[in-house]
Amino acid sequence: MKILVCIKEVYDSPETLVFDESAGRVTFGPHTVFRMNRYDEYALEEALRIRERLSSAVVDAISVGSPRVSRIIRRALEMGANHGIHVQTPGETCLSAFERAHLIASAARGRGYDLVLAGVMAEDDMESQVGPLLAAVLEYGCATGVIFEEISADGGRVAVEREVEGGSRECLTLALPCVLTIQSGINTPRYPALSHVLRARSSELECIEASGLAAPPPTQGLVRILPPAQGRQGEVIEGAAVEKADKLIRILREHSLLPR
């Protein structure tokens, strides 16, 4: 069984982003640090667990992005992936899910993956599209928001549970090959084992230039980044910490929410 896991690099904290309102742009700041999208960590962990259940499985990790992205691919190797693929874009490029999905599909086509896993959503763009678009391009089946999976003994089908509103689950069985987008909480992602860390250090990543891959023209364009909508004009309680605490206690008492 060949498994591909799509991983994305995201910034660790949105507080470090720099917003240029007149240009309508957001850029990384000097203190921005990067890590793997959390949902993709769950996807990778699930792939590793499948490999542990099915002895002959192989897990590849793929990511699209600037040279910096190689770090999270190495992290995937450290967690236990067999092979890392880097679809490299020149410098900082802001690609839509559509473009990412097509680049991953071009790189993956012909390699005979039985199962493709991705996180249910990227924490930064929040599009939730790479997995299902990739499925459509590769003509694979797809289930999103997967919180449980079990591959049949013959490796031909996978039973999944999708998490839906209120925490209910939809149960379905898909034929392989297919794409599953993985919901957080399906497992507990592991920390890298020392043996894998050492092996990852000496492993070569497979590097593919994005410009050499076939992809259709983008379906959408970013016009600009806007500040958030106004929302409720709540009161920000000001003062020293003690004053804030006392004010809050007073407010809660006035509303009979705290006993006197």
Partner: peptide, 30 residues
Amino acid sequence: CCITAVEDVGQGTFIRSVHHGRFRAEVRAD
């Protein structure tokens, strides 16, 4: 073109939250 989690409409464009709801993106369909 597919645009997800649309929360408002611009001049022929669509607006959605990004970056943990800190900003919004105005997106044009091509």
